[in-house]
């Protein structure tokens, strides 16, 4: 009973934080976009000279751009609260529908990349930590340092050149084959389009997790409780299996869930490089073309996405480490 109410308080606090954060982020994004030199109407009609000044004014009026900023923000904000997210200017469809569709294809990309980087990073980190100072450790560490200093878009281009253009193993871009009807696209097609971008995206996360896990493993192996485990006759294998993995998983899990923001940021670059039609690309488009409703919608959704990631880390921490559970509940 007591425990349940503790969890309730924890979740309520988090919810309040989320709402205040959302309001703040909405205001900041709106102000930034307001200050940006991009004129939505010009962005919309493009360089075409056929559209006269009068028509431009009509479009602006239609979108409500002639009203003062504060009034526009309030109008947008109140409708958001009512559940109306508005219509995207560039896609001319409801914002939620656009986000929903884009998010789904991005989600596949991010999920694959996230799992891959988490598992690979953790395993490599454990290996490097256990063989600290040995050749394996040096190779893994060098690999991590190279990766960490490599921009993801550059890596993406490199992958396209090597695997798609030179070797022809994977398609160059987009999420489905060109010239095929949507209903004829097979799962294999989708997967082959997914591999390169998700691999690129996953490589960003590996180093971080790997290096942190490695350090944690080194710390654990020099801890008193591992010494005592040795004194009780546990073999190295048993120590790694029984003590190292669980203790090292704590920072790894936190990092992995905290990496949601980097994952999202990485997806923007990677989708751009691979012309992958996901949320990342939609973000770039809506920003460059001043599509305020869509951009604001994406900001809100991505904020919730990242926030849920962080909260999951906290919750999982409580499950794995009983000491934290007691601390949070008290």
């Amino acid at each position: 009973m007591e425990k349940r109410s503790g969890l309730g308080i924890f979740l309520t606090k988090r919810l309040i934080k989320l709402v205040t954060l959302l309001v703040a982020i909405c205001i900041v994004t709106f102000v930034l976009l307001e200050l940006s030199p991009i004129d939505p109407v010009t962005a919309y009609v493009g360089a075409s000279t056929k559209v006269g000044a009068e028509q431009r004014a009509l479009i602006a009026e239609h979108w409500g751009l002639n009203k003062p900023p504060i009034e526009r923000f309030m109008a947008w904000f109140t409708s958001i609260i009512r559940g109306d997210w508005g219509t995207s200017m560039i896609y001319r469809r409801p914002v939620l529908e656009v986000i929903g569709q884009k998010f789904l294809s991005s989600l596949a990309l991010m999920a694959v990349a996230w799992t891959l980087s988490g598992v690979l990073g953790f395993v490599l980190g454990i290996i490097a930590g256990v063989y600290e100072g040995k050749a394996v450790d040096k190779v893994i560490r060098a690999y991590c340092h190279i990766l960490i200093s490599t921009p993801s878009f550059w890596l993406g281009i490199l992958f396209i050149m090597l695997f798609a253009v030179e070797l022809g193993w994977f398609p160059v871009a987009i999420s489905v084959p060109i010239g095929v009807l949507a209903e004829d696209v097979s799962l294999a097609d989708r997967l082959s389009h997914l591999i390169l971008p998700s691999l690129t995206l996953s490589l960003i996360g590996i180093s971080n997790i790997c290096l942190h896990t490695r350090q944690k493993v080194v710390d654990i192996l020099s801890s008193d409780f591992v010494l005592f485990a040795k004194a009780r006759g546990e073999s190295k294998r048993s120590i790694i299996h029984n003590h190292v993995i669980k203790n090292a998983s704590l920072p790894a899990i936190t990092l992995q869930f905290l990496s949601f923001s980097e994952l999202f940021g990485g997806a923007v670059f990677v989708e751009q490089v691979f012309s992958y039609p996901g949320l990342g690309q939609a973000t770039v488009q809506s920003g460059l073309r001043g599509d305020l409703p869509l951009l604001m919608g994406i900001v809100i959704i991505s904020l919730i996405f990242v926030y849920v990631g962080n909260m999951t880390a906290d919750l999982l921490y409580m499950v794995i480490d009983p000491r934290i559970k007691e601390g949070q509940m008290a």
């Binding site: 008193d224 003590h243 480490d321």
Partner: peptide, 14 residues
């Protein structure tokens, strides 16, 4: 067999 000084010599997560 060794008897350590305190419970700090036990795995905190097990």
């Amino acid at each position: 067999a060794l008897i350590p000084q305190s419970v700090n010599y036990l795995d905190p997560l097990q």
